[in-house]
Design a protein around this nucleic acid. Structure first.
Lengths: 199, 199, 199, 199
DNA sequence: TATGAATGAGAGTTCATTCAT
DNA sequence: AATGAATGAACTCTCATTCAT
């Protein structure tokens, strides 16, 4: 999968900023936004409390930065991997494979994504909603609608099905143990989705 | 659906306690546990800030009380409604119908349930997990396994499918507008699930 | 010793008031004035929270009532017992005997007296100081000055010695175990005082 | 007496911490532990209310710190001064001299010590009891037992007499006016003790 | 007289943020 | 760029007191 992207990014971001974001991901994942402690994030990253404010204007900006950059990587990696296949059924499988792989490799960050998606803060939810529009449209068009066009999937409404697939992905991906093991298998979930969509 | 239960309960609970719980549901739903303001809950319910502590020992106890009683009603109403049918396919429909109806009628409370299910606090999650064991088992056995036994559903693993159905329910039920309208239709979702499970 | 006094008093005080004072003595003894809980006192006495305000205007009045009535009994019992002897040396012994006996029989109440004597509140201390003037003068005149007059004690300053004897009494009386046992023996302490004063 | 110790210590303690402890001593002395106001302590020391928590974890820790460091200095100064003499009678004098001097020079701090010694909180009392073990043993052995060994004092039980001397010290030392004047003279008290112990 | 629900001032404590060094 | 002392708003919780019943 697309590993090199991350290293590339780190060259542009200062190392300190990167360390702070990593620390922030852990803290936000375990405490949630409201109970996360900014000082603790800075300390965990190996800096004094004040340092974090040289990189982020506020707790909220730090959080949003984490949210958006994670979403970008997330989408990028999934789409890149799914795009390598043309067959809609294989694309369905790859969607869950790439998605689950991203979760396993970015535990803290994805916990933050999921907490926020289902959390109470409407501003944060809006940010995420906008960030994920491109993935949502990709799934609706390049997987569901494509399958219908090719006569493999039933004549369903692509947007509703896209929503459902995203929902299933997020719901199953959130059932993850501390060590990164996801309860369900991507094959299993993809198979479920395949039966739901097949003609 | 089982409406009378609620009124019955109110006769045993003091009116003040009930008002406080209603107020708490709104506050927790919109702010989340951490940012909910206990004094504000009491004031919204029409009492002074100290009053809430005559009924609940702490913010946490108030929250857990809300969580557990909501879960109990939730499960009770769904199972009662599903049980009126014997056919697995109809049960599947009724599961989503009853579930979505409960959400529409208990907007704040269900937002709290969902926030908590996908939230960062492991203690709260454990409480919910335990509370929902009975519904999970009902779905796995009295819907999925029943359908397999009757030769209507594919030979799937009932527990995994139970998990998936619960996931789909929670995920779709969380996509609700301020006025209680759920994005997707229960029929649509039930239909999706039916295709996924049918032989 | 003077036991009947207590019963007499109880006939004038309502039983409820007496129970509340007993409860208050325990609470104040173990928690101190500031951390004593008025509701808890009322409940311990077997009444609801509000009841205590039918008998005492405020926490402070309750406390002062307890303080003053205890001091009165305390002084009364000591003087009555010491007065039965004429010899200054025997009076010295009886002073400590009666004092220690009162402490053993009124553990909670004397703890309150001592806490308050050495405590930070100047108003309370003044109340006690005034209440104990008569005992202080009794000790200075009817024990110390008497001993000097009779040529048994050294030519000391009676007031200073009165202060010292009271100090020794309070200090030793405060060293008491939970079950009412005082560390030192009244004989021992009296003997010490006797040697300090003898010609 | 050993004055330089204090200045030395201040070099290791931050100035802020020292100011906070001084402020705390005043507040605890005048209000007692329970009614002392943490915010007020910080303000009195010239800081915002939150500042105190940069130096002490809680009100209790602040109090215990004050208690223990005061006890240490107290013991240190008394023993250092008494040790300069070998004669038991002179040691007795010096004990009260050094003790009264410490009280006069550390009014607030000693009020806290005495309040706590005779106060209701068993945890605080235990802390003090342990802190003063060394002084108690010093008095029992290096003053009382020494005097007996040298044939100057009566054949008394050293521990009981140690207790009595400490009691007298604390009791008389607590009778101090606002401006630091102690009611009794150390000579007077030492003379009293001397007569009580002499052969 | 007894009750206990309701009150609201006030306390200890947390922590995002600022800023002089 | 990094530090960490200082800040003060905001929060949860306690409890003496009131009062309608």
């Amino acid at each position: 999968m697309v590993r090199y992207k991350k290293e590339e990014r780190e060259q542009f971001l200062s190392r300190t900023r990167q360390l702070l974001l990593d620390s922030a991901a852990e803290e936000f994942a375990h405490k949630g936004y409201a109970e996360a402690n900014i000082n603790h994030i800075s300390k965990s990253a190996g800096f004094a409390k004040g340092t974090i404010y040289n990189y982020f204007a506020s707790k909220e900006e730090l959080f949003l930065d984490l949210l958006v950059t994670t979403a970008e990587q997330h989408i990028e990696e999934i789409i890149a991997y799914v795009n390598q296949e043309d067959d809609p059924r294989r694309r369905l499988e790859r969607f869950f494979e790439a998605g689950f792989a991203f979760v396993s490799q970015n535990l803290a960050r994805t916990r933050v994504l999921i907490n926020t998606t289902y959390g109470p803060n409407p501003d944060f939810k809006l940010q995420l909603y906008q960030a994920y529009q491109s993935l949502f449209q990709y799934v609706s068009r390049q997987i569901v609608a494509l399958g219908i066009d090719e006569g493999i999937f039933r004549e369903v409404e692509p947007n509703s099905m896209g929503t459902l697939l995203m929902t299933i992905y997020l719901g199953t991906a959130s059932q993850v143990s501390e060590d990164g093991q996801i309860w369900l298998d991507p094959k299993q979930v993809a198979d479920f989705a395949w039966h739901a969509l097949r003609k």
